[in-house]
């Protein structure tokens, strides 16, 4: 019952909807349409919200990438500031190789020759000539090396006069015991008359061993591992042998030819 009817004591009768049905239907239809539009708008709003969220994620990722790129640039700049290290090492390698190559074959020639000469006493044995074919930057010393006696850094050829063949043997033995010499042998020995005296002459050959080398220009600490043993091994290696896998200096083909 509506309030007016209740106020005036209207009988309790069933209410009657007097609104025409078509009007009621139109109202419902408007409500439904409105609801449909609202739903579509909500969908559009959801899309907008999602798009904004995506934009935010994109912006965040872009910002993060920019930061990472900046860090990368900074790291690159720092790394590239060490470019001088490469130059320094290349220079050091050149210096080590240059010093080693020019100095590996240095022999204290005064001491070496004195050591050889002192093996003859000047009475029972004396030298007529001594030839030292030592090494240099181009390679081991020239001179014929008999493969039977091995190869070394150079050769010594000498001519001596002794009072007897026994003294010649003594001289050869003493030379053999001299540091820096090895494989000492007489190549040609004969009796000869010199100034009315009869002597035994010896023309001999010896190998100069690495013990004769000063090695003073070898770098004490090498960045490329240039140490006397490896250098000498390489220099004296049979060229037909398998190359060593270890890093070591190797003479170029021109260097091994040597000029003496």
């Amino acid at each position: 019952m509506n309030p007016v009817a209740a106020k005036y004591g209207a009988p309790l009768l069933a209410s009657v909807n007097l609104v025409p049905k078509d009007i009621q239907e139109r109202r419902k239809m408007r409500a439904v349409r409105t609801l449909a539009i609202v739903v579509v708008l909500i969908a559009i709003g959801a899309v907008a919200v999602g798009y904004i969220a995506a934009l935010g994620a994109h912006a965040l990722a872009q910002s993060n990438l920019n930061d990472k790129v900046a860090q990368q640039t900074e790291a690159l700049n720092k790394r590239d500031s060490y470019a001088g290290v490469h130059t320094a090492y290349a220079t050091r390698e050149t210096q080590e190789f240059a010093l080693t190559q020019i100095g590996w074959g240095e022999v204290d020639m005064s001491s070496f020759i004195a050591a050889i000469a002192s093996q003859a006493d000047g009475k029972d044995a004396s030298f007529v000539s001594i030839t030292v074919l030592g090494p240099n930057a181009m390679g081991p010393g020239s001179g014929v090396q008999d493969l039977l006696f091995g190869a070394s850094v150079g050769t010594v050829h000498f001519s001596a006069t002794t009072s007897s063949s026994a003294q010649a043997s003594t001289l050869l033995a003493r030379l053999e015991a001299t540091p820096g010499l090895a494989a000492v042998r007489g190549n040609a020995e004969r009796i000869a008359t010199i100034k009315d005296g009869v002597y035994w002459t010896v023309e001999g050959t010896a190998l100069i061993t690495p013990n004769a080398l000063t090695g003073r220009l070898f770098p004490e600490e090498s960045v490329v591992g240039l140490v006397p043993d490896s250098v000498l091994d390489t220099l004296l290696r049979d060229p037909n042998a398998e190359p060593s896998p270890e890093p070591s200096a190797s003479p170029s083909p021109e260097a091994t030819e040597g000029e003496g």
Binding site: V39, V40, A43, I44, A46, V47, A48, G50, Y51, A53, A54, L55, A57, H58, L60, A61, Q62, N64, L65, D67, K68, V69, Q71, Q72
Partner: peptide
């Protein structure tokens, strides 16, 4: 609603998220 959501997702939202993912992957690579 379906059309709006689909168009919004495929034409606007998803590409942005894809771009964001690509940027993130690039950032990790960097």
């Amino acid at each position: 609603v379906i059309v709006v959501l689909a168009l919004g997702w495929f034409l606007a939202i998803k590409p942005k998220f894809n771009d964001a993912a690509a940027l993130q992957a690039k950032a990790e690579e960097v």
